[in-house]
Design a protein around this nucleic acid. Sequence first.
DNA 1: CTGTTAGCGCATTCAC
DNA 2: GTGAATGCGCTAACAG
Lengths: 353, 353
Amino acid sequence: MDIREIARRAKVSTATVSRTINRVPTVDPLLAKRVWRVVNELGYYPNRQARALVSGRSRIFGLIVSEITNPFFPEIVQSFEDLAVQHNYELLLTSTVHDPKRMEMSVRRMIERRVDGVAILTFGMEDSLIGDLRFRKVPLVFVDVGPRMPGVSNIRVQYQEGIREAVQHLAALRHTRIAFVSGPLALRSAVARKAAFEQSMQEIGLKVARELIIEGDHTMKGGMRALLELLSVRERPTAVLCSNDMTAIGVMREAFDYGIRVPEDLSLVGFDDIRMAQFMIPPLTTVQMSQTELANLAFQALLNHVESDSLSLKHKEYILHTTLVVRKSTAIAASSSAEEKAAKARRLVSRTA
Amino acid sequence: MDIREIARRAKVSTATVSRTINRVPTVDPLLAKRVWRVVNELGYYPNRQARALVSGRSRIFGLIVSEITNPFFPEIVQSFEDLAVQHNYELLLTSTVHDPKRMEMSVRRMIERRVDGVAILTFGMEDSLIGDLRFRKVPLVFVDVGPRMPGVSNIRVQYQEGIREAVQHLAALRHTRIAFVSGPLALRSAVARKAAFEQSMQEIGLKVARELIIEGDHTMKGGMRALLELLSVRERPTAVLCSNDMTAIGVMREAFDYGIRVPEDLSLVGFDDIRMAQFMIPPLTTVQMSQTELANLAFQALLNHVESDSLSLKHKEYILHTTLVVRKSTAIAASSSAEEKAAKARRLVSRTA
DNA sequence: CTGTTAGCGCATTCAC
DNA sequence: GTGAATGCGCTAACAG
């Protein structure tokens, strides 16, 4: 069943069927009705591949993520899908699983399917691959790491905003020894978060002790290791800010195993606000980097490139704000009360022994 | 840049280029080399839409889920993607977000893109939609709810296996008052789990008190509500088995708020083994329904339909086993020791007051 | 073994 | 306002 079948049955030409389906206004209402009747009766669905072939637009947007199972991404994928449906697009989802080969294949697959644009949420991509895509004039949008070139947009995350809030929140709770567990410092976004922390501390005149800055790896295990390191420090921190939520969850788990209570003995702040953060016990205070908003910006960026031919060349920057979400993993510093401090010391000694 | 361009530059016909690229063995190695050289030099990627159009096979498998953000799905999507890459397929991911309209659109999108098969992981689908798909001879695979008809396969989950293990595990830990928090009983899979629980209890001669069976809704909130109900019962349960992990997480959270310790005061078992289960404090003992395995079966089912034309008509059933994964949320029943029981009673009274 | 040719299903000229 | 004809990029007959 194809467009010709419809044309025959409606006693019009295929051109008229095509026009009707595409809602070209110049078609006679009478004929249109006849066409629609047949279309609905037969349950005719136009072939997208054929349309794409002739129109040169596939109405597919690619989305490259590092791992779908990374809790940061499901919300983004869902939002992206919602937008795709709304705008009559399809989503081509691809994951690199941290494998350069897979990244290359992702790009190849995008090109073979002739996507109309690609959102790259994998915090970095080889120049040659960007070149492959741009050579074919595929609009691109990155987060943070987008090169300044025509046809590619960039979403700039305001790490400083939320992290400053977090630091000041902790300071207001009378924490002064605040530790920071970073992400892998090969990641630009991790470096940015760490820098934001250091600046935020400096802004309010707090020292950041070197031994309180630990390099993690954005995993739960990394968070667990980090807390262990922090426990071996002479004067322990009373609060820990983490470069992402999974790290904070790791810290929380290890704290539990050592009988350190969150937030009574240790205040904890994450980053990202993945959904799981709400499910933790206690619910995690964290800096929110809205995944919905991120997806929105990315989709709009691609759409802008596609829809407007004239502007499509301009590099554009979008801003993604971050903000602190206070839940239950932060409290007044234990050390502010001598009694509590003593109690805590006793507990820690007995447990870590 | 298209196949003709390559043909011209390699001084062969387009047919030869096509054959070379598709690795038809009868092509002269010399010519093939010439073609490959040009292909690589120009970075030529064949147009999949065109291929699909002429071959009648899109090399796309559809995957319909209820919500991508449901923690049960990301692992499945990832595995499905991995398999797709391996077999040179693409994944068309679609979510219904519990909206019949969206479900309808999903089906429509699948058909318009001419997918070669669809895996439906949304626990139910209208007959008319199944009809739409089958009318176009699209192979289908369902979980549990697949109709017995040619061209559609079904993955049958062995709920009983894992749930029996869970119940016997709890019994071995000397629990006798075991509660069950079900899912929404409109869901076939939820009903199956509940039935499996009841049978497993009966098998070992344990009574299942009516007031210890609570209908939940497979969400954290549902789990929280369920525990509340269970706390109001005359003789409280010492263990709770939940129809899914999110429910168990809700129970765990509410227990925490009431000062009920897991597993010392209350043993807790989930179902599904979503990744988050490992991240809980304490890590959740749960019945594993391997998401990787599920994805594998689904993909293979579709592949079987597509690859073999003769067998493609036969309805096939696949089995997905379940098994208990013991972690830290279960322990010997507190009530087995009079002393502990008294202690627990005191705590509960003071907290719930 | 290779090249020529005819569609795949559709949108879009261009005459009418 | 409508229809006949052309071609999007590719594969599959067929003839050579």
